[in-house]
Design a protein around this nucleic acid. Structure first.
Lengths: 375, 375
DNA sequence: AAGATGCATGTTTACGTAAACATGGGGGAT
DNA sequence: ATCCCCCATGTTTACGTAAACATGCATCTT
């Protein structure tokens, strides 16, 4: 099917292999259609018409070869491919999109790349999109809290993507002064945006419950929580599940402390918690804060896990190498990203699926930062 | 200048604010140009011609308003904007690109997002691109070592981006069976691709020298090195600078150990190094491996920094929260990303700058994982 | 006051592609 | 042998935009 393309890319590769990058040589390689003047400063792009003339076929046949259509004679295809090769033909994506109305591109809106989960999810999204033949267009939004978000969203109001993935705390969607263009499929990660949207997310509540239960099963009489920012939906759901799990065990949850996801904020709260002898088990809302907490505990002379148990959330690559190796909740970001694209492509290409929420299970990974209550 | 755009996006926002996402309503809002049939399943896109007719002007005037051209009467502009608003006009990026020959998009080629440096750099690139009005198109490459890279590069042979940033070990460029299309500006990060390319990178050699000198100044008689994979240029340059720094001090460098950047590989090498009483100072080629090394040292009963000093590379967000807080080399990834786009835009839009290498300084951040030689 | 100049706006055209429709010839079914 | 259909290929057209050129009116220069 895609035979035509493979041939082309291979050919262009060969041509370029020994060259350094240069601008403007292309026009001298093949004949331009109209301009026979010696001025090679004209440098028109090689179009299908050029290839067609070179190969002695119609431009429509070139189009068929370019798109791997089956109804082209093998000899003709080879001749066209050879001409593409000789002229250095490269399809013009803009023209194709204009004609077809499809952009073969998925937009990703995110506030920051600088969190483990976002990055890992984006990676999965990129791979899944590429596999489906879609390009990924990044649409970063500088300042989540600012009201001036709409500026960054102006590009959304251009027709440039077939669908959009939103990776951030969705309640920003409510009060911010922007909205999505209509008619564009959207999938949201990390939110409980509700039934109006298609949502994919890891099972935050399950993870928080597993973490809390794990600590209770170890005999701890209470579990303290260092939560994420209140502005984060996932943070709030972890907090809620922690609270209800404790309630289910007949325990009144202590006042949660709110960090900002950073290890530094975990460290600050850790120093406070270390002072309190009643605290023997801490559930941190992410691994970074757990790391900061453990540093504070080390510094305060409280043994982990002998004197204090700590559980994180995310299962970053490094969590198993912390000291001690961190018990944490594993989130399958790759699966979230994959499903995300699957749902989005379903809306773009296929059946108008009903919006809804897809939950990916989380699981507890027990390592060495948790131990039995030694009270 | 951009006044037209701001108006438009604001307007579309208002229209959409209270709506849930829906497909196909747009056509019912305004009048379609040709189709007066009751079938609103036609759903043509609103074009400039539609807006022009609605506003009673020519489509060229609509174009001028859309592009913020100054030579439009204020009253006319307002009328056109009102029509855009009423019809829900969204510019068609493909048509614009086809006409102008510019895509206002920068392609980023990378093997994986899953390293701290790549992610941070990408973040900076995204912000810088957005600030310049360019979209970022991700072009992930699944398997760095495979020879079948060309398949993933087929999109590169489409005209779809104005320039390309490559974030990976550049020697893959040499032996892999692909090459970049000609005429497209390219900037490479993390490589010594040579004078033929425009290269931006952090000063790997300086960082490695600073790290090694720091350990020597603390009195250590030798510095062991856990390097990155030999396939990585940056790893090799750190290794080389480490070796030459030792040589400058009259010390024969011990055989370097090669990890794969992961904490696990650092742990494995750390266990070996811990056994050797001659080892009192270790320079790890990144923070993750340093973390793994420190875990191995803790486990082996060797005190850090009392008994063993460890230096990392990168200065990840968590390095300061390791136990003990890690002395490491800070790389300014944000600056690298920013410069990268600056150089690229220079080649795309402006003067044909000569290719060359731009180096961003690194600096040593001394924390608690290094101490005086206690031999 | 007459021509020159500037400015807002309109008209024509082409960018490169692929869908829709058209054509013509070869092979299979009857 | 006749008809029909399939298949490879060609022709026409339109996608939405902005550059280039054209027009007509008002203001400025001398």
């Amino acid at each position: 099917m895609k035979r035509g393309y493979a041939e082309i890319s291979a050919s262009v590769n060969q041509l370029n292999r020994s060259d350094t990058l240069s601008v403007g040589e292309k026009a001298t390689m093949g004949e331009t259609t109209t301009a026979d003047t010696g001025q090679n400063t004209v440098r028109r792009n090689v179009s299908m018409a050029d290839v067609a003339q070179h190969a002695g076929v119609s431009s429509q046949t070139v189009s068929r070869v370019s798109n791997g259509m089956p109804n082209v004679d093998e000899a003709t295809r080879e001749r066209v491919v050879a001409s593409m090769r000789a002229l250095g033909y490269r399809p013009n994506r803009a023209a194709r999109s204009l004609k077809t109305g499809q952009f073969k591109s998925i937009g990703v809106i995110m506030f920051t790349l600088s969190t483990f989960g976002n990055m890992r999810t984006l990676d999965a999204i990129a791979m899944a999109s590429a596999a489906a033949g879609y390009t990924l267009t990044l649409m970063p939004v500088p300042h989540p809290t600012q009201g001036s978000i709409s500026g960054a969203f102006s590009r959304l109001n251009e027709q440039a993507v077939d669908g959009i993935v939103i990776i951030f705390e969705a309640h920003v969607l409510d009060d911010a002064d922007f909205a999505l263009p209509r008619g564009v499929p959207v999938v949201i990660i990390d939110s409980d945006a509700g039934d109006a949207y298609t949502v994919v997310d890891a099972d935050q509540a399950l993870g928080a419950r597993l973490a809390t239960e794990h600590l209770l099963e170890l005999g701890h009489t209470n579990v303290f929580h260092v939560a994420g920012p209140t502005a984060s939906f996932s943070a709030m759901r972890r907090l809620e599940a922690w609270r209800s799990t404790l309630a289910g065990a007949g325990i009144t949850a202590p006042t949660p402390l709110h960090g900002d996801w950073s290890a530094e904020s975990g460290y600050a709260h850790g120093l406070e918690l270390a002072k309190n002898p009643e605290v023997t088990a801490i559930f941190a809302a992410n691994d970074q804060m757990a790391l900061g907490i453990m540093r504070a505990l080390h510094q305060s002379g409280r043994e982990v896990p002998g004197d204090m148990s700590v559980v994180g959330f995310d299962d970053t690559d490094e969590a198993g190498s912390f000291w001690p190796p961190l018990t944490t909740v594993h989130q399958d970001f790759s699966e979230v990203g994959r499903l995300c694209i699957e749902k989005l492509l379903g809306e773009i290409e296929g059946t108008h699926e009903r919006p809804g929420t897809t939950i990916v299970p989380t699981r507890l990974v027990v390592r060495d930062s948790t131990g039995p209550y030694a009270g």
